[in-house]
Amino acid sequence: MSVQLFSPQGMMQPVPYHHVAVASGSRHVHVAGQIGRDEAGRPVGPGGLRGQVAQALRNTARGLAGAGASFSDVVRLTFYVTNWAPERIGDFMAGVDDVAGELGLPQPLPPASLIGVDHLFEPDVEVEVEATAILD
């Protein structure tokens, strides 16, 4: 399987993600929205948004691994963040940086969207991340 990540000339830069992913393969892996909780549903780690982003990405990695994939196979990430404001980008990116090496996150990230929402499914959940990967 091959995933090529790139940002064509003329697209907005710098951003912490690639604008385009091209993948060849026949197996699609879709990881449902993952949050900052452990397998028993307990909130994990301190740090508000930063800690929740890190744990949600760890959970996403577990989902990918269960399908035989990793972040190197990911062609799309979607992040939903409650009460989004531009001032929160530092905490958000710190959470990504905290686990980038541990999880093998490509830098820049695959194509990604960060969508601000009013609420997620429970009041203490600040972030949810979905991933799409392509495998042979």
Score class of each variant (00 low, 15 high):
77 L>D: 10
10 G>W: 07
134 I>Q: 06
125 V>S: 04
128 E>P: 00
62 R>L: 15
52 Q>I: 07
61 A>E: 10
47 G>R: 05
62 R>T: 15
95 G>Q: 05
9 Q>V: 14
113 S>E: 14
55 Q>E: 15
31 V>M: 04
37 R>V: 15
32 A>C: 02
128 E>V: 01
7 S>L: 03
41 G>S: 05
32 A>S: 13
31 V>W: 05
16 P>C: 08
113 S>D: 14
10 G>Q: 06
82 T>S: 08
69 A>P: 07
102 E>Q: 13
120 L>Q: 12
54 A>P: 10
50 R>E: 14
110 P>C: 12
58 R>G: 08
128 E>I: 00
111 P>L: 04
62 R>M: 13
34 Q>D: 02
114 L>P: 03
6 F>Q: 07
113 S>T: 14
22 V>S: 10
55 Q>W: 03
80 Y>T: 06
64 L>C: 12
87 E>V: 12
101 G>P: 01
14 P>K: 01
73 D>H: 14
54 A>W: 09
124 D>L: 08
59 N>P: 00
136 D>G: 15
126 E>S: 12
34 Q>T: 13
28 H>E: 13
107 Q>I: 09
100 A>L: 05
103 L>V: 09
122 E>R: 12
37 R>N: 03
92 F>M: 11
12 M>R: 13
103 L>W: 06
45 G>D: 08
89 I>W: 11
127 V>I: 14
4 Q>E: 15
134 I>G: 04
61 A>F: 07
46 P>A: 15
57 L>I: 09
20 V>G: 02
28 H>I: 14
35 I>Y: 10
37 R>A: 15
48 G>W: 08
134 I>N: 01
89 I>N: 11
45 G>M: 10
71 F>C: 11
48 G>N: 07
39 E>V: 12
29 V>G: 04
93 M>E: 14
125 V>N: 07
47 G>E: 12
25 G>C: 04
27 R>P: 00
101 G>W: 04
14 P>V: 12
114 L>W: 09
87 E>C: 00
73 D>K: 02
52 Q>A: 06
40 A>S: 14
54 A>H: 11
53 V>S: 09
13 Q>N: 04
71 F>L: 07
73 D>C: 04
93 M>C: 05
53 V>R: 06
95 G>S: 11
18 H>M: 01
20 V>R: 06
12 M>L: 14
23 A>S: 10
39 E>P: 01
91 D>C: 01
